[in-house]
Design a protein around this nucleic acid. Sequence first.
DNA 1: GTGAAAGCGCTAACAC
DNA 2: GTGTTAGCGCTTTCAC
Lengths: 334, 334
Amino acid sequence: MNGPMQRRMTIKDVAEAAGVGVATVSRVLSGGSASAQTRERVLAAAARLDYHPSALGRNLRRQRTGGIGLLIPDITDAFYAKLTDGVLSCARSYGEPVTVGVTGDDPEREAELIGALIEQSMDRVIAVPSRDGETAGEIWAPALRAGLNVVFADRQVRADVPSVVADDAAGVLTAMEYLIGLGHRKIAFLARHGQSRRVAAFTDALTSLGVPADRGLVVHARASRDSAYAAVAGLLQNRPDVTALLAGGNVLGEAAVLAARELDVRIPRDVSLIMFDDVPWAELCSPPLTVVARPAQDLGYRAAELALRQGRRPRTVALPTELVVRASCGPRAR
Amino acid sequence: MNGPMQRRMTIKDVAEAAGVGVATVSRVLSGGSASAQTRERVLAAAARLDYHPSALGRNLRRQRTGGIGLLIPDITDAFYAKLTDGVLSCARSYGEPVTVGVTGDDPEREAELIGALIEQSMDRVIAVPSRDGETAGEIWAPALRAGLNVVFADRQVRADVPSVVADDAAGVLTAMEYLIGLGHRKIAFLARHGQSRRVAAFTDALTSLGVPADRGLVVHARASRDSAYAAVAGLLQNRPDVTALLAGGNVLGEAAVLAARELDVRIPRDVSLIMFDDVPWAELCSPPLTVVARPAQDLGYRAAELALRQGRRPRTVALPTELVVRASCGPRAR
DNA sequence: GTGAAAGCGCTAACAC
DNA sequence: GTGTTAGCGCTTTCAC
């Protein structure tokens, strides 16, 4: 079915077959100037030999590997999977390969992966950074020094690096308006570690809406399902006064549904729940979940556009979120 | 925060700084033999200069790009996301980068992506092929000719290429035994296009269990959510005699739940449902779904091991499936 | 318009 | 044990 393994054709083979110099072949193949006749001969020879230029040679010469690196916390998280899909979809239209690494939100792994990208001479990176502030600065300094074209996605950590984010603050605010309109006052926020911006947005939203923010009502979890579950369960048991819950991501929301079910607290009768991310199962859940939808796919696509764009890039682009009301919120009851 | 962009150090710089030849540097850095003193000098110089070897140079010289290519139908499908996670996890322990491409189950895109991998001189590929039989042969011939180390995952299409698959036939059989034990006779199979092996397993299981197989009860859909929904809806409307449904994947299962809800057919009262893939939402669904769990992560991990392994590789490894009984199946009622 | 030749950073064969 | 050297396949001056 498949023939013997063949030696790979080189530009030199094509040059000989076409009776021209290698430089001419290179020019023709990369759209440079050549006489119509020469061009035709080269193309014919290339086709005949089934020649495919080696990215290896080209990259070494150009001192850069094409393609883009993508660093995300977790590929099994539906939100990041969708973001990845957006990146892949954009990259495909440019014919650029994408190398994916998962950080697990661990700065150490993130730094390792950045090192690997530099070693590969990748010159474009899209990343969902695991930390912000100083730590992010340290981690990303080598990449910037090496001249990588970095774009952050979903999180905004350094003013000098372009970011594509969802307008989380607006999303949180809309959710809070909705919940407070239903009569809720004791609202908890279930956050991933390091979601400091969203926590700030949460307390800001609350105070701007005239509800005193209670620091104890912000609980943190790592991104894993276990950690999320423990955090929700703890909250539900220790703070029976809480009547509404905002989950800062779909994994956290999943844990919330599970924990609530386990502890026999009913949604929305006992506590109302809003989750970040409109994943497919939000609609299949019982009850169907009200969510703050973020344009995951777009986030990835736009980030890839920025990473691929040559010239000056905008600082930050923020995409709108949308509150999708389903059946997981009700009026305050207790 | 970040200094000026620096010229990248080369092996030559290190050699000069250490007062040795480039070959010695290369040897020391790749664990070859050298005197303790030389080794130390080289290491010190490399560290001082913050030298990181260029994968570009090495790859060109070695005539191969390290790393592994991964071709999957859809990264937003939880099953493939998990499989991808397994591949990434194994690759990470070998320090190998992974380039991901999505085929959308389209042979044309698959062929394109294979071309790109060859151009990159990737020498290892893990793929969930979009077609089997002749078509797969044609599509993959160039890759095999180029000497790529190919491993198929989830689907088994050519005897000469190692595959890592779940034991789908056993999974189907167990599911059928369970359903038939509940009294069901008119059982439909909702399959993705090209799942011919599983369809065969389905009819085989039925006949071996003494239930006449009805060809009309196998319905096909493309992998997209829309196509799946249309297929289920059509089935549910045209064949009211069907009392049980086996969905050949989580996207199909999702569509089944949605369509059933829309058409007001109750699960499990009106029709029982078993879905392939134990995704997180199966438990959150109402009712919680009985599933045939496949070890998605393991599939990916094992495939990566095979792809990374140097010597002779086993032909096929089949991993067991497990029927996880929840609440979406009941006794035949109508 | 075209060809010859110089390297990109690295490894491996070979000489010492 | 170590240095010198010849390329890997390609692009890009620089002559012609």
